[in-house]
Amino acid sequence: MEKLKIVNSTYIPLRNENVDTDQIIPARFLKATSREGFGDNLFRDWRYQKDGSVNEDFIFNTGKYSGKVLVAGRNFGSGSSREHAAWAVYDYGFRVVVSSAFADIFKNNCTNNGLLPVEVSPEFLEELFSRAEADPKTEVTVDLGAQTIKIEGTSLSESFEINGYKKHCLMEGLNDIDFLLSITPEIEAYEQAK
């Protein structure tokens, strides 16, 4: 897993609320047996029209926005446990997702893949949207060590929560499996006592 410490980037504002995992990656694209290539189908049915042509109205296709940070409306990632959703967001090039609320499983899936979910207040989220709408070149700096997100060129910043263990894993690029394997004797002892 890639280490994640500080991300400074422009961002894509996706105002939609309650974006579910079927929107992030529709089920018909879950047939792969590897983790790669899901970014091509991120928000597939919003990026493309029914006839396969590009939907010019969708924020990703307007040519105005890019960056390593996705800013989305409240309750992002609800629905299915498909980790493919987190893979698709990551594979598209994002390293941070910002919203005012995330679905639980999606959040776990993000941190297990080097993707940082940042939960901000509804007011801060609104600032992010309106600033980017006014100026698509607006940048944010997300500092995982300090647990802050700052809108560059303004005095606006906010701190966010993340549990210490997950933070450590993300910053060092560590995986839960390595940790769990390192305590195998304790797992064995638990099984014997059971």
Binding site: D104, I105, D176
Partner: peptide, 21 residues
Amino acid sequence: GIGTSEVEMVLTTQCLMQRKP
């Protein structure tokens, strides 16, 4: 429900890292 990374954790170690909800 769990994601695929967690499926891998359980297959490998029969355990998960979980916070009490």
